[in-house]
Simulated scan of single mutants.
Amino acid sequence: MRPRTLKFKDVISTNEELRSFIGTPSERAEKKVIHYIDEHCQNFISLSPFLVMSTADKKGNCDVSPRGDQPGFVMVLNEKQLLIPERPGNKRVDSMKNILENPRVGLQFFIPGLGETLRINGKACLVKDDELLEKMAVGGKRPLLGIGVEAEECFIHCAKAILRSGLWKPETWKDKAHLPRAAKILADHANIEGVSVDEVEAGLIEGYKNRLY
């Protein structure tokens, strides 16, 4: 059955109308953006084990993808450039295909327990430089590729969303028994004849155990 679509009737269509609802940013918010990776950003990145990366193709179709490893897994090359290792995944390479069509990317770095996040916007490319990739090897296994980013905007994002969500508070987390079962979702969405949920789950577990690097 085709999903029903709700048509939004009352929407904002101009910057002026948006500002009438939201107001204007403070001087501090206006001035917080810098255009290079300074010592504060470098320190934040060195402590971050996780980021999300937003990309879009040439038509503007958007995607967001997580990247994670041990703190400091993203290599800061200089005040303008950083390199993100591309570890083994499901080979869809949605982000990398987008980057080939449209190099604009947005990154958001997280540090567990810290409400504020670091945002970096810029241009990306796909890097196959052997010397750089060897420096990012884990257990003798180097990344397949690297995503190089030239920073154009860097700024701290306030903690309000993290605080409202209770993201870093274990007492707010649901018991695992009440969480969605990823294998069930994946099996239903893929809908491959003859492949059971248990088989999908076994494949996920095997990949998590043996193919992280």
Rank of each mutant, 00 (worst) to 15 (best):
G113M: 04
F109L: 02
G166T: 04
K123E: 14
A159P: 12
I147F: 03
K128I: 14
I162V: 14
R164D: 06
A124R: 06
G146Y: 06
I162T: 03
I99C: 07
W173K: 13
V105I: 12
M136R: 03
R119V: 11
E153A: 00
W173I: 08
R119G: 07
K174M: 08
K135W: 02
G148I: 14
P143E: 02
A137T: 13
A161P: 00
K97G: 05
L163A: 09
A177N: 10
E171A: 14
G166H: 11
E101R: 01
Q108M: 14
A151P: 02
P112D: 09
R104I: 12
P170E: 07
K97A: 05
S165K: 08
L145T: 15
D129H: 02
E171T: 11
I156N: 00
E101C: 03
K128M: 15
P103D: 10
C125T: 15
K123R: 06
T172Y: 09
R164V: 08
A161I: 07
E150G: 08
A124L: 02
L107C: 04
F155P: 00
K169D: 11
F109M: 06
T172E: 11
F109G: 01
L100W: 01
C158Q: 06
K160Y: 14
P112S: 13
D130S: 10
V105M: 02
R104H: 14
M96H: 04
G115R: 05
P112Q: 05
V138N: 10
W168V: 08
G115S: 07
K97N: 11
F110M: 06
L145V: 15
M136I: 10
V105P: 03
H178Q: 08
M96K: 02
M96W: 12
G139A: 12
G146H: 03
G106Q: 01
G106T: 06
R104A: 13
W168L: 00
R142H: 03
G115K: 08
I99P: 00
I147P: 02
I147E: 01
G115D: 07
W173T: 11
Q108E: 15
P170D: 15
K169Q: 05
I99G: 04
I111T: 15
A177Y: 13
L133E: 10
K141P: 00
G140W: 09
I120Y: 01
K169Y: 12
L126F: 03
L118E: 01
C125L: 06
L167M: 11
L100Y: 09
K169R: 12
I156H: 00
D129Y: 13
P143G: 00
R119A: 12
H157S: 08
R164M: 05
S95E: 04
L107G: 03
L100I: 13
K160D: 14
S95R: 07
E131W: 03
G148F: 04
N102A: 05
A177K: 12
L145K: 04
S165P: 04
V149T: 05
N121M: 03
A177L: 11
D175N: 07
V149A: 05
D175P: 01
I99D: 02
F109E: 02
L126H: 01
V105R: 02
F109A: 00
D130V: 15
K97I: 15
E131H: 08
V149I: 12
C154S: 12
G106M: 01
G140S: 06
G139I: 15
E153R: 02
A124P: 04
I111N: 09
R104L: 07
C125W: 10
D130A: 11
F109R: 00
L144V: 15
S95Q: 08
